[in-house]
Design a protein around this nucleic acid. Structure first.
Lengths: 198, 198
DNA sequence: GACTATAAGATACGGCCGTATCTAATTAAA
DNA sequence: TTTAATTAGATACGGCCGTATCTTATAGTC
């Protein structure tokens, strides 16, 4: 008569929780998602969640990286620095798009309050990752004679990411026109390619 | 025998609340400051606070603009675009400094979640305000022959602010060296002044 | 199969959020 | 001065946070 109380454990439990997180994220959005709500939806308790993830941001990132296949970026090689930059921006834009804006802003906001989250956001933030993509692009551009200098400091390398993030945050969208403007008015002049902006 | 119950009203009450807010901000910092805590400290209730300010961010901004005299920026006129830019950055840096970093990040985070706050933050964010300062600088630089173009889009004009904000957020400081680098490696090239970076 | 370490689940806590409702003090109007 | 309109203050609500504690199911070990 008494119902069996089956308990999920380990990976099975994690999977169930992340599934619930993902579903809540779709239904309610980042802001309205709560730890307790996810726990309820996953038919467990928040105690269990707090044992694994320190806060909402980490939980959501875990779900994101499980479901929203975070494929890495590809180093563009289109034959010209300008189109390389536009291609890269397109890739990042697609990534930000998937985060649905509101989720992205939520994660960013959380990052501002708990700076440790930095590392996890390195993809969107683009610290080390971006250099790995930019450097080959710049080296090739130099070889082609488009630019002369290739040893740029982090601040310059990260500029692409900063511009995109700011665009999403302040205008809530990331149009092709905006990307063109950023490349032609800002990035190309910075990298020292003058004259053939378009 | 029964104590008189004197009630503060209007401005007197607002003043007391803002004083309490300011004090709590010093003592606890932005994150740990709570509406209920301020209400307690001001010997009133949160009902009263919510009748005037929609959230913590607005309350703190109100206190800031009352106590931390938000003096406006002065349009630099040092005789060269480079030093003008450095001067402006210095002014903004001083403003950000006063916000104690943590408060700034807190306000920024809040802004990400409730985008309406945008307007209030326009000083730090620098939408319309920044153009009013940048444009005369650029016009003068053009007259001097340092640059040729002066009709820059918002995205370019706002770059100064974006760079500074990003610096504070990601590195938690804003050194003179960093400002020099931003001016020499990014801003001057963007505005088209090549060759005399330093 | 019995025993033990581990981890899930249940429950409760104090604290804060933001809202609603009611009362009582104060001010302005009549 | 009495009356009416404001607005401060008190209280209570449901909801969530993050932590602590305790019970109980599960897995591995002897």
């Amino acid at each position: 008569m008494a119902e069996k109380k089956i308990r999920r454990r380990g990976q099975a439990l994690v999977d169930a929780i992340l599934a619930a997180t993902w579903e809540q994220l779709q239904v309610k959005g980042y802001q309205a998602l709560t730890i307790e709500g996810v726990a309820r939806a996953a038919a467990t308790t928040k105690t269990v969640l707090y044992r694994r993830w320190p806060d909402k941001a980490h939980l959501v990132l875990a779900a994101l990286s499980k479901y929203d296949n975070f494929t890495g970026y590809v180093v563009p090689d289109t034959g010209a620095l300008r189109t390389d930059l536009l291609d890269l921006m397109g890739q990042i834009a697609a990534f930000l798009e998937k985060l649905k804006g509101e989720t992205f802003r939520g994660l960013l906001a959380e990052r501002l309050q708990h700076l440790e989250l930095d590392k996890l956001m390195s993809r969107a933030n683009g610290n080390a990752a971006i250099r790995g993509i930019m450097q080959p692009m710049l080296d090739r551009a130099a070889k082609r004679g488009e630019i002369t200098r290739t040893d740029w400091p982090d601040r310059v390398i990260n500029l692409v990411g900063i511009l995109l993030i700011n665009e999403v945050v302040s205008r809530q969208e990331l149009s092709q026109a905006a990307r063109n403007e950023m490349v032609d008015d800002i990035l190309l002049p910075v990298f020292g390619q003058q004259g053939n902006s378009h």
